[in-house]
Simulated assay, not measured.
Amino acid sequence: MPSVSSVPPSSRDSVAAALRAAGCVFAEDEADLILTTARTPAETAAMVARRVSGTPLELVVGWAEFRGLRITVAPGVFVPRRRTEFLVEQALAQAPGATVVVDLCCGSGAVGAALAAGLGRVELHAADIDPAAVDCARGNVAAFGGRVHQGDLFEALPVELRGRIGILAANVPYVPSDEIGLLPQEARDHEPLVALDGGTDGLDVLRRVAAGARHWLAPGGCVLVETSRHQAPTAVDAFARGGLTARPAVSEERYAHVVIGVAP
Score class of each variant (00 low, 15 high):
residue 112 G to F: 06
residue 112 G to H: 03
residue 112 G to E: 05
residue 113 A to S: 09
residue 113 A to K: 02
residue 113 A to L: 12
residue 114 A to G: 02
residue 114 A to W: 05
residue 114 A to T: 05
residue 115 L to Q: 08
residue 115 L to E: 12
residue 115 L to M: 14
residue 115 L to H: 09
residue 115 L to W: 09
residue 116 A to C: 10
residue 116 A to L: 09
residue 116 A to F: 01
residue 116 A to D: 08
residue 116 A to T: 02
residue 117 A to C: 09
residue 117 A to L: 13
residue 117 A to H: 15
residue 118 G to Q: 06
residue 118 G to Y: 01
residue 118 G to I: 09
residue 118 G to L: 08
residue 118 G to H: 08
residue 118 G to S: 11
residue 118 G to T: 08
residue 119 L to Y: 01
residue 119 L to G: 03
residue 119 L to E: 02
residue 119 L to C: 04
residue 120 G to I: 10
residue 120 G to H: 07
residue 121 R to I: 02
residue 121 R to Q: 09
residue 121 R to T: 11
residue 121 R to Y: 07
residue 122 V to M: 12
residue 122 V to N: 01
residue 123 E to C: 08
residue 123 E to L: 14
residue 124 L to H: 03
residue 124 L to Y: 01
residue 124 L to T: 02
residue 124 L to F: 06
residue 125 H to G: 07
residue 125 H to N: 05
residue 125 H to L: 00
residue 125 H to V: 04
residue 126 A to Y: 01
residue 126 A to S: 12
residue 127 A to I: 09
residue 127 A to E: 07
residue 127 A to D: 09
residue 127 A to C: 13
residue 127 A to Y: 05
residue 128 D to T: 01
residue 128 D to G: 03
residue 128 D to M: 04
residue 129 I to V: 15
residue 129 I to W: 11
residue 129 I to P: 05
residue 130 D to E: 15
residue 130 D to F: 05
residue 130 D to M: 10
residue 130 D to S: 13
residue 130 D to W: 09
residue 130 D to I: 07
residue 130 D to V: 07
residue 130 D to K: 06
residue 131 P to V: 10
residue 131 P to K: 11
residue 131 P to Y: 08
residue 131 P to S: 11
residue 131 P to Q: 12
residue 131 P to T: 10
residue 131 P to G: 11
residue 132 A to D: 15
residue 133 A to G: 03
residue 133 A to D: 00
residue 134 V to K: 00
residue 134 V to F: 01
residue 135 D to I: 06
residue 135 D to G: 09
residue 136 C to Q: 00
residue 136 C to E: 02
residue 137 A to R: 00
residue 137 A to T: 03
residue 137 A to C: 03
residue 138 R to S: 08
residue 138 R to L: 06
residue 138 R to H: 05
residue 139 G to W: 08
residue 139 G to I: 07
residue 139 G to N: 04
residue 139 G to R: 08
residue 139 G to S: 05
residue 139 G to A: 08
residue 140 N to R: 02
residue 140 N to P: 10
residue 140 N to A: 10
residue 141 V to Y: 04
residue 141 V to M: 05
residue 141 V to D: 00
residue 142 A to W: 01
residue 142 A to L: 06
residue 142 A to C: 02
residue 142 A to T: 04
residue 142 A to P: 00
residue 143 A to F: 01
residue 144 F to G: 05
residue 144 F to M: 09
residue 145 G to S: 12
residue 145 G to F: 10
residue 145 G to M: 13
residue 145 G to V: 13
residue 146 G to Y: 03
residue 146 G to W: 06
residue 147 R to N: 12
residue 147 R to I: 10
residue 147 R to P: 00
residue 148 V to N: 12
residue 148 V to I: 13
residue 148 V to C: 12
residue 149 H to S: 15
residue 149 H to T: 14
residue 149 H to G: 14
residue 149 H to D: 13
residue 149 H to N: 14
residue 149 H to M: 14
residue 149 H to Q: 15
residue 149 H to V: 14
residue 149 H to C: 14
residue 149 H to F: 14
residue 150 Q to Y: 00
residue 150 Q to I: 00
residue 150 Q to T: 06
residue 150 Q to R: 15
residue 151 G to Y: 12
residue 152 D to Y: 11
residue 153 L to F: 03
residue 153 L to T: 11
residue 153 L to G: 03
residue 153 L to A: 11
residue 153 L to S: 09
residue 153 L to K: 08
residue 154 F to R: 00
residue 154 F to W: 14
residue 154 F to S: 04
residue 154 F to H: 07
residue 154 F to M: 02
residue 155 E to M: 09
residue 155 E to S: 13
residue 155 E to T: 11
residue 155 E to A: 15
